[in-house]
Nucleic acid binder design. Sequence first.
DNA 1: CGTCTCCTAGATAGATCGCTCTAGTAAGGC
DNA 2: GCCTTACTAGAGCGATCTATCTAGGAGACG
Lengths: 201, 201
Amino acid sequence: MAGMPAATRERIVERSAELFRRQGFAGTGVKQIVAEASAPFGSLYHFFPGGKEQLGEEVIRWSGAIYGQLLDAFYAPGADPVAATRAFFAAAAQTLRETDYADACPIATVALEVSSTNEPMRKACADVFDGWVDAATERLGEAGLSRKRSRALAFSLIGALEGAFVLSRALRSTEPLEVAGESLTAEVREAFAAQRKRARR
Amino acid sequence: MAGMPAATRERIVERSAELFRRQGFAGTGVKQIVAEASAPFGSLYHFFPGGKEQLGEEVIRWSGAIYGQLLDAFYAPGADPVAATRAFFAAAAQTLRETDYADACPIATVALEVSSTNEPMRKACADVFDGWVDAATERLGEAGLSRKRSRALAFSLIGALEGAFVLSRALRSTEPLEVAGESLTAEVREAFAAQRKRARR
DNA sequence: CGTCTCCTAGATAGATCGCTCTAGTAAGGC
DNA sequence: GCCTTACTAGAGCGATCTATCTAGGAGACG
């Protein structure tokens, strides 16, 4: 164990995450992963004895956690959910433009590939989505919405984001993301307006 | 040419469409396609001299046209867009349940896979999405909305559907689709309400 | 110094990939 | 009958896939 234990392992995970989200799980070979990670081939199976599937599952969970932190940063406690929504979609659109429409959702590409064919990986994707929804529900609840309304709004938010990513990547246009941003910002605003009205009675 | 010209070709396209949407383009082998289509291997390259990519592109456009017809059937001229939206999402949820969460969007899985790696296929997906959005925009315009509002609502509709498909397939739950259905039904209702209010002035 | 553990390094196995090739069959036109 | 065209049928090619295997390098510890 050197001073930098297993930096190779991290490089493999990070590069895999980028490749998987851009070209999918089946479309990415382990040779390509180790080449782009500048890692020896043997190291992949040293760190991931379960092979490509173990790596895939771990990449899903790791990417999901990173993106979850981003979500948390926007919808921070005390922040205005309306402004957060607008900013989040705007940031997603900017990232997409900057990466030539490559870096959208880190797990959606793999999620669609594996949902009907690979149960462990499907489960990993489901756990990530559940985590995002739960976190968003929690934050919206803290901001004043009922539990039921929070959860529905969280699904709307994340669903609209995922769908806009699909369209924006294929169309090479941020219009879907911008429209979704406006639409969801309005939905969040209305949800809180309705809540305030109810509270005033 | 017999009485049934090229039924084999159709079987290849149909089976490919089902396999691609469930396990992706890279995840589906040509051997598996001809096996499941009960087609001779040679026939695939007879009908599709451009190989797997030509087949993929044609499958995308064919699937997109079929699904576009479904969209047209719900948002038929004269139909109430609010009821159509509710019915469309409900039907999508039912199909998903009936197919064990396999048959969602016929092209989204492939779209995410190829958007950054295969320009001809990305273009095919973009053409399909553009067609859906244009058709929905047209129908909403006929129902009374401004062109700008129609287009935005069309993007919202299709985007919300795609995103809910991603979540519902991975979570094996129709909750995302149901939430999206309610959310979009409300958005369509409000768009027409605002339009009527504007017209009354 | 020897030894143990962790990691590197890559050759190679065995299966599968997309695709090409040749041969054969069946129906329509002459 | 014969020839042409359309399609069937599958063997097999080179490349690539995931995964295993053996061997060696480097630091920690006695």
